[in-house]
């Protein structure tokens, strides 16, 4: 990567206009860590988004709204009774990188090892995109393929809206790594809604061990109407291979990854159920 220009817009409109004018060589910049993963001689004109008041977390109605340029360390430290995002942010990379990396950078261009897309799919988050005016897009549509497709004409991600968990909701996530700072081998996130002792709704998503994060709809379907027990979770997790073709990774066969994913799905569901029971108690 070769940074040949550094632009500091004063408004979102100016930022968008600059990116539209620059075309493919324009790159929105917040934390900037992704710059270092770009090929050596690629000329880049950076449009700095850090002066546009896009770093914040606030509760608005039924959503927590996180500004796109909010560092992961701020999300990790934020606390509220119906907030669960800190759990996964604590597990992303090292503290020094979390001080710089932003939620927007993590999800505008999704790298295979990214954890937040998995969590946002499970949580049914909504992304706010500025295209001259603000528009919202649900996680299923946003992560249906590489989100970078949405920003080629200069549009910008400005915020992520996370639904506030209700009393009967439970959330759990699991990130399997070799050590604390390593990239994920498999990441699983699960959101359960319990009603009268049974699972009324479920969203389960996976990432890292598959080419692109996705929901595990066969697993979700197998959970509906069942009691949230270990047996239920194990039976549902056994169906994950229907939804995802697990990829072999360094030092791990595809079979091993599939086993790791199934165990991680059960663990995430157990955590979600425990969370939900804690809320209803």
């Amino acid at each position: 990567m070769k940074l040949c220009e550094f632009i500091r817009p004063a408004t979102l409109a100016q930022a968008r206009a600059s990116l539209r004018k620059l075309g493919p060589k324009g790159m929105p910049l917040a934390g900037g860590t992704a710059l270092h993963f770009m090929p050596g001689k690629t000329p880049v004109s950076a449009v700095d988004l850090t002066g546009l008041a896009l770093s914040y977390i606030r509760q608005k109605g039924n959503f927590f709204e996180i500004g796109a340029a909010t560092p992961l360390s701020d999300i990790q430290r934020y606390r509220s009774p119906r907030w669960a995002m800190h759990e996964i942010c604590r597990r992303i990379s090292t503290h020094q990188i979390r001080n710089v990396s932003t939620i927007g950078g993590n999800i505008c261009r999704v790298f295979p090892w990214a954890d937040l897309p998995v969590v946002l799919l499970a949580m049914n988050a909504r992304m706010v995109i500025y295209s001259g005016k603000a528009k919202e897009m649900g996680a299923d549509e946003y992560f249906s393929s590489q989100p970078a497709r949405l920003f080629r004409n200069g549009d910008l991600l400005t915020a992520v809206k996370i639904p506030v968990l209700k009393a009967q909701h439970g959330f759990g996530s699991v990130k399997a790594t070799r050590n604390a700072a390593a990239f994920s081998m498999v990441t699983i996130a699960a959101l359960l809604e319990l009603k009268d002792g049974r699972i009324a709704a479920a969203r389960v998503a996976a990432g890292s061990a598959i080419p692109f994060p996705k929901r595990l709809r066969s697993v979700e379907a197998a959970l509906l109407g069942k009691e949230p027990s270990s047996e239920t979770f194990r039976a549902a997790a056994a169906l994950a291979g229907t939804d995802a073709k697990w990829c072999k990774q360094e030092g791990m066969s595809a079979e091993y990854v599939a086993g790791l994913a199934e165990v991680s799905i059960v663990d995430a569901l157990e955590r979600a159920a425990e969370f939900a029971r804690g809320r209803t108690a």
Partner: peptide, 21 residues
């Protein structure tokens, strides 16, 4: 950004200087 040998404080926060411009 993996080893931390280049770490510095920017506005009081520890960051890896190899990953910043």
């Amino acid at each position: 950004g993996e080893c931390g040998a280049c770490m510095v404080l920017v506005d009081g926060l520890a960051v890896n200087s190899c990953l910043m411009m």
